[in-house]
Computed example of a mutant assay.
Amino acid sequence: MAKRIAVVFDSAGTLLHMYRVAKEAATGRILENIESTAIVAKKNGCGLVVLNAENETILRSREEMLLFEFIEEYRVPIGISCSKGELSLETVCEIIKGTQLRMGDVHEVLHAVSARCPNIFYLAAGLIVDSKARDVPYVLSTGGQVFATTLETLRALQAMKVDTYIASGDSMRTLSQLAEYIGIPPERIFALATTTMKEEVVLKLKNKYEKVIMVGDGINDILALRAADLGIMTVQQGDKRPEKLKEAADLVLDDIIKVVDVVKGL
């Protein structure tokens, strides 16, 4: 007999309140509170690329070192968190190799987030890659801290015998600390999940559970929200969200704790 309910959570902006900074490669400007998935969604061939390296390793690197040299020398895995249209890792590597981006650019955004985000829970670095322009227009860093009601929400659901999952574009390295804190086992974490992969996670879980709920806040959650038996969009992050994302959701909640009442109602 199928288990009754599973709840799949996005991470950044849903479980974690995020602070994001981008450095515009063309001008050197630092842009605060940017929405990386929204930037990607504006143009075909764009993708959000994650550098899967420890921050200590990044910050120990020489500022003048080329980014591609760092990736090669330290054998840094990179992942495509989300993209609009087709984008391969091979293409990403070719584009990064053709730029003059240096580790000092990555250091700058990491330091900017650390300075502005108190009680930081995790810190990550990445890039926006434009395969049409063959360029990297932005270097990014994001920092997150759990929302005040995140832990309470997960504990309440788990006490109700609801199975909880994470499907996120973040790396496993980043997500493992969060999952341990909120009580989600590693086998229920789907890291580096693209928009399509999140949808696939939901569809597979629907074969195992009577009802699958997807909880997310970003445009990369849109297919999973539509695929779920119940799609919940959270607006706790406070950023402006596309109207089509709200239309894809069955419910829009201003606090993640309200997911508990929704599940009780089922």
Rank of each mutant, 00 (worst) to 15 (best):
V8W: 00
F9Y: 12
D10K: 01
A12K: 01
H17W: 09
R20V: 07
A22L: 10
A25I: 12
T27P: 11
R29L: 06
N33E: 07
I34A: 03
I39A: 07
V40A: 04
A41R: 07
K43Y: 01
N44M: 13
G45L: 05
G45P: 11
C46Y: 09
L48F: 04
V50C: 08
V50G: 06
N52W: 00
E56Y: 04
R60I: 01
S61A: 15
E69L: 09
E73G: 11
P77I: 10
P77S: 03
C82M: 13
K84S: 07
K84L: 14
K84R: 15
L89Q: 14
E90V: 02
T91L: 05
T91F: 00
C93P: 00
K97Q: 12
L101S: 13
R102W: 05
R102F: 08
M103R: 09
D105R: 02
E108S: 15
L110I: 14
A112R: 13
A112D: 12
A112P: 05
S114N: 03
A115M: 05
C117E: 15
P118R: 15
L127V: 12
D130Y: 04
D130L: 05
A133T: 09
R134T: 09
D135N: 11
V136D: 07
L140F: 10
Q145G: 03
V146P: 15
T149H: 05
T150Q: 05
L151T: 12
E152G: 02
A159R: 09
K161E: 12
D163I: 03
T164K: 04
T164C: 15
T164R: 05
Y165K: 04
I166Q: 10
S168T: 14
G169K: 06
D170Q: 10
T174V: 14
L175Y: 05
L178I: 13
I182M: 12
R188I: 00
F190E: 02
F190I: 04
A191F: 03
A191C: 12
K198P: 12
E199Q: 14
E200A: 13
L203K: 11
L205F: 03
V212G: 07
M214D: 01
V215F: 03
G218Q: 07
G218M: 10
I219S: 10
L223Y: 12
L230K: 09
G238C: 07
K240C: 00
K240Y: 08
L245C: 10
D250I: 02
L253M: 15
I256T: 11
K258H: 15
V259D: 06
V260H: 11
K264M: 04
